[in-house]
Amino acid sequence: MRLRHADGSTVHLSYCTNVHPAEDLPGIHRQLSGVAARVRELLGVERLGLGLWLPHQAATDLLARRDELAGLRGRLTALGLEVVTLNGFPYRGFHDEIVKYRVYTPDWAGPERLRYTLGLAEILAELLPDDVTEGTISTLPLAWRTGWTSDKAVAVRANLDAVAQGLRALTQRTGKVIRLGFEPEPGCIIETTPQATGLLSDVDHDYLGLCLDACHMAVGFEEPGAGAATGLPIVKLQASCALEAPPGTQRALAAYDEARFLHQTRSAGGFTDDLGEALAGGLPAEESWRVHFHVPLHADPPPPLTTSAPYLRGLLHTLLGGAAPLTRHVEVETYTWNVLPGAPPDIAAGIAAELDWMRVRLASLGMKEQW
């Protein structure tokens, strides 16, 4: 969906397709004609924005067979879908039985991450709608924190310079500007937006900046204005909500301690890499906990648990409630629909409800829906 900001610029709203388990092109086409098309119908919009996730194999196939890339673009148009942003964080296997720490590999120290990201940029430049010249890609915050060395830091810096050069060359060749946003996440080398200030202060800010994830920021107990205060460009916002447990209620979180994804958990007095560690005594029960478990934006979990939806509303106001938007790409990223406790949900209906929740919030900030 596109919305018009009060300053006249367009804000793009999408949902991230990393919620769908598809590793190859046939699977991606099925998700487009299945869930994505139904979400658009449920919302009653002319065109629906997607934050497309293209795993390594699918991206490789698209680059090797340009007819497939043209076919994907045509299929998007035929279904009333459009893509201005890609999620380039998971490399592959995001819906394997166990993902956990593997989602951070390959990291930005190796050539695989550089090649994958530049490949995604080539693809996105071809997928952008005819009237759009700027796209964005989100990526991991350099690396997971363990195993970090000075040699690794040097390799990462070389790859950041190389990706910026590659993106600039792509602009010169195609006229399309593709910008890359590094996504701070608890437990990683860039955990918070203030850390990003130091680690990304001297990169090429024409092409490299931040992707702010509202769930991650809430788990880090960051102020909603922290991202705007870094001085770094905010190329994308991932609209997401963390799971919260008030003091003394943490046993209710046991239903969310699942095997696939890593659920970093923080309280005012501590941090654990995963929810199971916290439940085993890793965090004080007399403090509130926030859990990196992306829960639906529009619906509260069963009491006594709550979510960080108020935090997300504050962040939206900070980034989009001013005279000009601080970012123009907003991506709803609730990738955990398939591991939520209880009966399997109607994912299309859930995603549509989230997007409706978001467009209502954006309208309250003065934005007008274009389609």
Rank of each mutant, 00 (worst) to 15 (best):
D204A: 08
L232D: 10
Y207E: 11
D274R: 01
Q250M: 07
C241F: 01
A162R: 12
D274I: 00
D206K: 01
A196G: 09
A252P: 03
A164G: 13
Q238A: 10
K236Q: 15
G166T: 13
Q238L: 05
E191K: 00
G166W: 10
A239F: 06
P247M: 12
D273A: 10
G220H: 02
P186T: 04
P284K: 03
E258C: 02
G175E: 13
C241R: 02
R173T: 14
D274P: 01
T230S: 10
V235W: 14
T249D: 12
D274L: 02
D257R: 01
Q195E: 15
A196Y: 06
G248W: 06
L283H: 07
E286Y: 00
G282I: 09
A259G: 05
H216Y: 02
A169G: 14
D204T: 04
K176D: 09
G282N: 12
E222G: 00
E183C: 04
C241Q: 06
C188D: 09
I234S: 11
P194H: 08
C211Y: 09
P186R: 02
T197K: 13
L199F: 06
A228N: 12
A169N: 15
L208C: 11
A285M: 03
L212V: 14
I178S: 03
A229T: 05
E244I: 05
D257V: 01
L279H: 07
C211M: 14
G220C: 13
Y207Q: 10
Y256I: 08
T272L: 06
T197Y: 03
A255W: 04
A280L: 11
L237V: 11
L237I: 12
G198Y: 07
A278I: 05
E222I: 00
A228K: 09
E183H: 01
A242P: 03
A245S: 15
A254Y: 06
A169T: 14
P246I: 07
F261I: 02
E223A: 12
L208H: 06
L283C: 09
F261Y: 15
E191S: 08
L170N: 13
K236G: 13
G220K: 03
I189S: 09
L208G: 02
P233W: 05
A252T: 04
T171H: 15
S240R: 04
R168M: 10
L275M: 07
G282D: 14
Q195V: 01
A162C: 07
Q238F: 05
E244V: 11
G276K: 09
Q165A: 15
G276M: 05
R266P: 08
A218I: 00
S240H: 05
R179T: 13
G198A: 15
F271Y: 15
A226P: 01
I178E: 06
T265D: 09
V203A: 04
L199Q: 11
C211H: 06
G220S: 14
I189P: 00
L275D: 08
G166Q: 15
